[in-house]
Design a protein around this nucleic acid. Structure first.
Lengths: 250, 250
DNA sequence: CGACCTCTTGAGTGAGCTCAAAAACAGTGG
DNA sequence: CCACTGTTTTTGAGCTCACTCAAGAGGTCG
């Protein structure tokens, strides 16, 4: 598995993300608990896998920095991106150690994660039921996100799918810290990633991006997403921001 | 909300499903706990809603008998079926009481559910951390199921989507009790439900069902699903049964 | 025996796909 | 600084899978 422990492994509880007031804060007791479990940080270079499809995971992760892409690859190479994980998101939770994960997690940018050993995680849950509840909360939120995604895939035309994705990204990033829509949000997605996420071909994504651009709605260029006419996008998709409201982090 | 309490409300712990050896058994301690919380049973007639989209839920449910369909409806009427819930499945978990559910749950057949009050559920979690862990497990399994579904929607042609759905249903039902594939599995789905689940039109589902039938692979007729050439379906979809392996119930 | 679903089939259309090939861009090494 | 190579984006042309519109056939239930 790719990734190297940081030179000076710091407990994750000290990670910068904890200080963002926008996240639900952990109580001091929980911080101590995490310290006790000596959680390790790990840096993963852009492009490499955090874990591969079909592996038996004995670790799971909280993303601290960077973008992670979860995707499944079928035997003939077709690929479906399941989720883009952003800082604060939890990935790789696999309660049954027997069954393999059915997707890969790949770093889209340089990524820093906090590593939980699976058994250690379970122990934490046992000691601190609240954490288990939060885990259930997180999983259930991810499921709701997946539901949005499924609705796009099943029942929206290409233009709406992209609009919806843009609004979702904008909203999720905004929940993590101030973003300047007008100036442009850093988004490390290639057109191919978008295609694989939305069930389209790269070519069709390209054409659809053009129509969005020419309609003055949104531009994705040079790793920057500019939402120019939010109202029009919202109108088109019926986007309701409360879909991704409060949530705990681990 | 539709549904009436059964004439003689029995604690869910006594519900027949508990006696199925195929489910992970609950310890006696947990049974007691559930008794203590005086969980109510409720019967819901075919067709009516267990909970509607956009509602604030203060209850969640374990399905005991029948089929439940979770679906989201967009403002213009397009509909996406998110999941078919079978006996033993948990639905309506909403850890944040503030945010509304983004989908409806509708009974496809006559359904019997076990009702959990949300606050009561949280209390159970606090008293019995193991339950919270199991909840996380359940949510995470549902997410994996959603991932399969997403992959179908995004990257499979109609024929494969239907084949995959059939295999999934067959497998999930088989995990709940003996089924006779050859004789036919009772499946209460109309072609319209399949269409809304798989992101297709009813008409196209119909045509595709015909090709599957004419290819001697599978037949869905009169509420019975007959899988006639399992190998061919598996070959086509790359279906791996372990996707839906062990899991706890609440 | 209508009224109403659900299923089925036909004919024509279109959104999104495939194949093919420029053009823009980002590194990389001389 | 520039030629060289690989990646990403863009555009064109033609095709197909799945959609729309329309209508008939089969059930089922009051």
């Amino acid at each position: 598995m790719a990734g190297t422990p940081t030179a000076n492994p710091t407990p994750c509880a000290e990670c910068p993300i904890r200080r963002l007031a926008l996240f639900e804060p952990l109580s001091t007791g929980l911080l101590e608990l995490m310290q006790k479990h000596r959680l390790e940080q790990r840096d993963v270079p852009a492009g490499s896998l955090i874990y591969p499809q079909d592996a038996r995971l004995d670790e799971s992760f909280t993303v601290f920095q960077g973008w992670v892409m979860l995707h499944r690859t079928l035997s003939d190479g077709r690929r479906q991106v399941l989720r883009f994980a952003l800082p604060g998101d939890f990935i790789g939770f696999q309660p049954d150690p027997e069954s393999p994960v059915l997707h890969s997690a790949q770093a889209l940018t340089a990524v820093r994660v906090c590593v939980f050993r699976q058994d250690s995680l379970m122990e934490m849950f046992r000691e601190h039921p609240m954490l288990a509840i939060q885990m259930a909360w997180i999983a259930s939120r991810d499921e709701a996100l997946a539901h949005d995604h499924m609705t796009s895939l099943g029942r929206r035309p290409a233009k709406e799918r992209i609009a919806q994705l843009f609004l979702e990204i904008q909203h999720r990033l905004a929940a993590r810290g101030p973003v300047d829509e007008r100036a442009g949000i850093p988004v490390p997605l290639k057109q191919e990633h978008i295609a694989d996420a939305l069930g389209l071909t790269t070519i069709h994504v390209n054409r659809t991006l053009r129509t969005l651009r020419e309609a003055g709605m949104a531009v994705l260029r040079g790793g920057l997403l500019r939402i120019q006419n939010r109202a029009a996008l919202v109108e088109m998709t019926g986007f309701r921001p409360d879909s991704f409201s409060r949530r705990p982090i681990l």
